[in-house]
């Protein structure tokens, strides 16, 4: 099951994910047409500021989702094809329980249609074997999409490299980055 992984260190706050998300949720799915639609399409990802960092806040499609547990009508449910947490608008009564229990603030009350609005994991794209719109739009690979075990593996490799580099610097060895990588592999 593929999931979203967010690396806060890479986010430049360009908001490309926000635009791509709104376009994906438009009728035309084209930027130049979407801006003329009525009603205007709405995004489901929010780039927020924290100290010197910025971070694209969105639904993490939690494995044990509080919003599903809190939903009194069963509107909030799991899509087993993609492992995503999604709203059935027909069942949603706009009590906002899901929004209240979401630890990320990623669920927003949509007063116009009286239902909860959140990331739906771009099902049209996933059905065609694609990536969610925010992932594709991110120019710095802050938001990536893949098997969680691969995403964590690459993160572990990076931290291993970082530690190894620190050791090499401490020992004052003059080596090229390639030699550094080789010595890391040989350990």
């Amino acid at each position: 099951m593929k999931e979203i992984f967010i690396d806060i260190e890479r986010c430049t706050a360009c908001k490309s994910c926000e635009i791509a998300c709104a376009v994906e949720h438009s009728l035309s799915k084209d930027l130049f047409s979407a801006i003329f639609e009525n009603p205007l399409p709405v995004k489901r990802v929010y780039v927020e500021k924290a100290f010197l960092f910025s971070y694209p806040v969105k639904c993490m499609h939690c494995a044990d989702a509080a919003c599903i547990a809190a939903c009194p009508t069963g509107a909030m449910h799991r899509n087993h094809e993609f492992g995503s947490v999604v709203v059935n608008n027909d069942k949603c009564m706009g009590c906002w329980m899901c929004a209240m229990v979401c630890p990320f603030g990623a669920i927003i009350p949509d007063y116009a249609v009286k239902t909860a609005r959140k990331c739906d994991f771009c099902p049209d794209r996933l059905k065609e074997g694609g990536k969610p719109a925010c992932v594709e739009a991110c120019p710095t690979n802050t938001i990536t999409f893949g098997e969680m075990k691969d995403l964590f593996k690459s993160k572990r490799l990076l931290s291993a490299e970082r530690v190894a580099k620190a050791v090499l610097v401490q020992e004052d060895k003059e080596v090229t980055p390639l030699e550094m990588l080789r010595s890391i592999e040989n350990i």
């Binding site: 908001k15 926000e18 635009i19 709104a22 930027l31 979407a34 801006i35 205007l40 399409p41 709405v42 995004k43």
Partner: peptide, 9 residues
């Protein structure tokens, strides 16, 4: 500065 074309930001 960027203006949100969808009126949300």
């Amino acid at each position: 500065c960027r203006i949100d074309p969808f009126g949300d930001g």
